[in-house]
Every structure is written in structure tokens, then in C-alpha cells.
Write a protein that binds this DNA or RNA. Structure first.
Lengths: 199, 199
DNA sequence: CTCTTCCGACCGAGCGATCGCTCGGTTTAG
DNA sequence: CTAAACCGAGCGATCGCTCGGTCGGAAGAG
């Protein structure tokens, strides 16, 4: 039985959503017309509307897919790691960095197009973002409670670490000087220093 | 002689640019029509075009104003601080956090609308961003060379610190649980741990 | 097997609305 | 009287989206 070992592999997107994702990354939601999405997907405009109700729905599907993928991967990483705070922390930071390095496009959209979402979808998206943040909050809290992490400001350190990891999607290039593994290693070292992990 | 002691005070924007800034923050550049900018500024559309050549020029003026303000404030903060690496680092991190807390709107636009800039303006903007990043790189390098900072990955730590500070513009609320001074204090502690400052 | 029916996938054309921007003025301050 | 500041109206282009189809292959009837 073949197992997919690709790091951070997401369930695949439809060709249409793939095209929309590329356009949204390059031009933004409002800067992208459905005509260029259709052209990039090799379809006519009505052909596109046969599969999706609106441009807004494509954005919502993309954002939901990205956030639920990240959350599920985070849960899996935490479940697979040892239960001590440092192992949990390493697993979560590694997962975050890997996701934002390998899945730059969905990750970039997930935090740059929040304001383009309809009100209800925006509420749902923010709830998912908060849940993701809470994972880090809890791991750090546990580490501080166990005396493993020495940061005097766990809440702000948690926010700082999550934002430094999510920002990876903005600048990391696969063909740059750092391989993904090197990137993860270095960010693990940096993040451990940020929360004052023992040792 | 009255001295303006407001932290991070920028040279004031014209009412038109102020209106454009608010619109760009709320709806994004492509999501904002010149008609709503004009309405927010209390002008007609031609009245607006009497002062600015195009919507694109308003964006360019805003981005340039934000980046040059941040850079000048950073230079001032570094010049006013003691010359030892830790004092320089504290000055620069404090300046970054303060700017992104007090000047959320310009800071937010400066990194969220890069792709909306014309090619030449985008090149200039990225050059300014790189220069800003280099300030942090140099301060951290000096600290590592002097044995004051112990991070094994100065380049990535510099990027991590700059991104955690700039991300403040995304989430900080003046009416939230942290005053600006508390925020700066905590981020200084966190940033010093991130680069492994002595003591 | 052929014929008919049906349905999902798709498209050319174009609707009404809005876009960035401008023309040809009038108003206002000095 | 000049010039800067401003505006009503509207240009051509493009926007998101839809109407009224065509087309090919699966399914059912004989």
C-alpha cells in the first residue's frame, strides 16, 4: 500500500479552484475578474458558473479548505508527538512552518483576503483562526505551568510565534538558500528561544 | 518651544489621502472605488482628480509616506540610543512595535497592497522594505559579533523578529487589554529572548 | 443492436451596473 | 482679473453574472 509521504499534502483542489487560487495570490480577490479565472482554468465564464455559484463562493471554499487543512494537520502533529510540552511545542511549530512553506498560496490567501469575505464567512474564518491560535496558547501555557518554558509573557509570545511562522508564507522561496527542512530546524531553534525552553 | 512628544507621529496626510487610506484598509485597493474615496473626503470625483493624477498615485504616495516615515523613525531611534548592541536592538524593536501599534493603517497598507503597486513603484517599495530589514540584520549581526546575542541563526532570527513586530498592525487594538507601553515592554522581552540576549 | 430520452458539462452573446477617468464648465480666494 | 479649487454629466471599458442554447455520453425501450 502506497502512503503519501509528501509533507503537508493537502487534499487536491479542483482545477477551477486551483486557477482561482493562483489569481487571488497574484492580483488579490477584487483585482481578479472571473474572466481571467475562467481563462486560466481553460473554461468559458458560464462553464465556470456551472461549478461554482459565485466568485465569492470560490474564495470561501479556498479559505475554508486552507484553514481546516492546517487545523487537521496541527491536530495530527500534536497527537503523533510525545505528550511533554517541549515535544508538543516542537510538533506544532514544525507543522506551522512546514504548512506555510509548502502551501504558500492557500496560506497567503487565508490571511490576506479576510476582508474580502462576506460577513458570515468572515466570522467563521476568524473562529477557525482563533481555534488555531488557541492550540499554540494551550501548548505554551502547559509548558510554562510545567516549568519547561520560562517566558514571562506566554500570551504575547504565543502570538509572536504564530505570526513569525505564518509570515513564512510571505517570503519563503523553495528555490532560495534554505531547504524546507533547514527552515524548520532554524525556526524550531528560534521559537524555543522565544518561549525560553529549558536547555 | 513646544516639542511634539506623540510617539510615532507621522507628518500629516492630506484629507484625500486620509480618506483613501481608510478605504484601502477596509476594502483593499482594488475593492475601493474612487467614488467612495471622493465621498469620504467630501469631494466630487473631478475635485479629487484635481489633486491626484490617479488612484494608483494615491496608493504610491501612501506607501512611500509610510515606509519613509518608518525608516526615518528607525534611524532617529538608533541615533538616540547608546551604541552598544543591546541598546540599539531595544531601540529598533521598540520603534518597530510602536510604529505598527500607533500607525496601524499605513503599516497595514504598506505590506498588504504591495501587489497593487505598478511595477516601478513596487520595486522602489521593496527596496525600502529591504533597507528596513537590513537595519535589523546589522544590529543583530553586531550583537552576535560582540558576544551579546547568542542566536545561532541571526538572519532568520532577524526576519522572525521583524515579522512578529510588523504583524502587530494586524491584531493590536488600542482599546484592547494592553496599553502601547505594555505591548512594547513585552515585545522587547520576547525579542531579546528570541536572539538570546545576555542576562 | 438501434433509437430515443435525458442530463451534466459547457459556451456565445450580452445584460445592467459600476469602473477609472475626463470634458467643459462654475465658484471662490486673493 | 487670474488662477486654483471644484463639480455635473458622461465617456468607453470592464465588472459579476445569466440567458438560451449545443453537445456527447449514459440509460432505458423495443
Amino acid at each position: 500500500m502506497a502512503i503519501d509521504t509528501t509533507p503537508s499534502a493537502l487534499t487536491p483542489l479542483s482545477p477551477i479552484l486551483e486557477a482561482a487560487q493562483e489569481c487571488f495570490v497574484e492580483q488579490g480577490y477584487h483585482g481578479t475578474s472571473i474572466r481571467v479565472i475562467a481563462a486560466r482554468a481553460g473554461l468559458s465564464v458560464p462553464g465556470l458558473y456551472h461549478h461554482y455559484r459565485s466568485k465569492q463562493q470560490m474564495l470561501q471554499d479556498l479559505m475554508k479548505h486552507a484553514m481546516t487543512s492546517l487545523y487537521r494537520q496541527s491536530e495530527d502533529a500534536l497527537a503523533a508527538a510525545a505528550s511533554d510540552p517541549l515535544a508538543q511545542f516542537n510538533a506544532l511549530v514544525g507543522c506551522l512552518v512546514r504548512f506555510h512553506a509548502f502551501e504558500r498560496a492557500p496560506a497567503f490567501i487565508a490571511y490576506s483576503e479576510i476582508r474580502s469575505l462576506d460577513e458570515e464567512a468572515r466570522r467563521e474564518h476568524i473562529a477557525r483562526r482563533d481555534a488555531q491560535q488557541r492550540l499554540m496558547d494551550q501548548v505554551i501555557e502547559a509548558g510554562v505551568a510545567a516549568g519547561e518554558f520560562s517566558t514571562p509573557h506566554p500570551t504575547e509570545a504565543s502570538r509572536a510565534i504564530v505570526t513569525m511562522c505564518t509570515s513564512v508564507a510571505q517570503w519563503y522561496r523553495m528555490d532560495g538558500p534554505l531547504t524546507p527542512d533547514e527552515l524548520v530546524d532554524r525556526y524550531l531553534v528560534i521559537a524555543r528561544m522565544t518561549i525560553g525552553a529549558r536547555g
